[in-house]
Simulated assay, not measured.
Amino acid sequence: MPHTYKLNEDVRHQPQGPQGRAANDAPMIYTIVQRMPIEADGRLRYRIKSKSENIERVVTEDQLSYSQ
């Protein structure tokens, strides 16, 4: 299964709340900085960096969408 997003591409990240529920926070814009190896559970992961803050995180592809 190939990764959908490319390096240096801007994406929206929808944070998740407790137990995987969608958080009420507005999505933030991040840049893809690394495609992570596919984990044992089969989900694709990315390392992303915030455009507005000095924050990096690893997220699953289902938490991302294209930035407009």
Rank of each mutant, 00 (worst) to 15 (best):
G42F: 05
K49G: 03
A40C: 02
V59N: 03
T31Y: 01
M36E: 15
T4E: 11
I48M: 09
A26I: 01
M36T: 08
H13P: 01
Q16H: 11
E61T: 08
V33C: 07
G20S: 04
I55T: 11
E39M: 00
N24K: 09
S65V: 02
S65C: 05
Y46H: 12
Q14K: 06
G20Q: 05
N54W: 06
D25G: 01
S65I: 02
E61G: 12
A26M: 06
A40G: 02
A23V: 00
R45Y: 07
N54V: 06
K6H: 03
V59L: 03
E61N: 12
P27D: 07
Q63Y: 04
R47H: 05
P27Y: 04
P27M: 06
Y66V: 12
M1G: 14
P18T: 06
V58T: 14
P2E: 10
A22H: 02
V58R: 04
Q34C: 08
P37D: 13
R35T: 11
G20P: 03
K6V: 00
G42P: 08
P15H: 04
V11W: 05
D62E: 14
P27I: 04
R47K: 15
K49S: 13
Q68L: 12
E39W: 00
G20I: 03
H13Q: 05
R12F: 15
S52E: 13
R45T: 10
E9W: 06
D10N: 09
Q63I: 02
E61W: 02
Q14N: 11
E9Y: 05
Q19H: 14
I38Q: 14
E56M: 12
Q19P: 00
L7W: 07
Q68M: 11
A26E: 14
R57T: 09
K51Y: 00
I32E: 09
N24V: 01
P18F: 07
Y46R: 13
D41I: 07
D25E: 14
G20M: 03
R47W: 03
I29Q: 04
Q34L: 12
T31W: 00
D62Q: 10
R35M: 13
N54S: 14
Q16R: 15
E39H: 00
R21T: 13
N24L: 07
K51P: 01
E9H: 05
V11Q: 06
Q63A: 14
E9V: 05
Q34I: 01
Q16P: 00
K6Y: 00
E61V: 10
M1E: 11
L64I: 05
G20Y: 02
I55C: 05
E61P: 08
R47Y: 01
R43T: 11
R45L: 07
G17E: 09
Q34D: 13
R45H: 14
D25H: 06
S50H: 12
V58Y: 03
V59T: 07
R47G: 00
A40D: 13
E56V: 08
I38W: 02
D62C: 06
A40P: 00
D10A: 07
A26L: 12
V59P: 02
P37S: 13
S50F: 11
Y66C: 10
D25V: 01
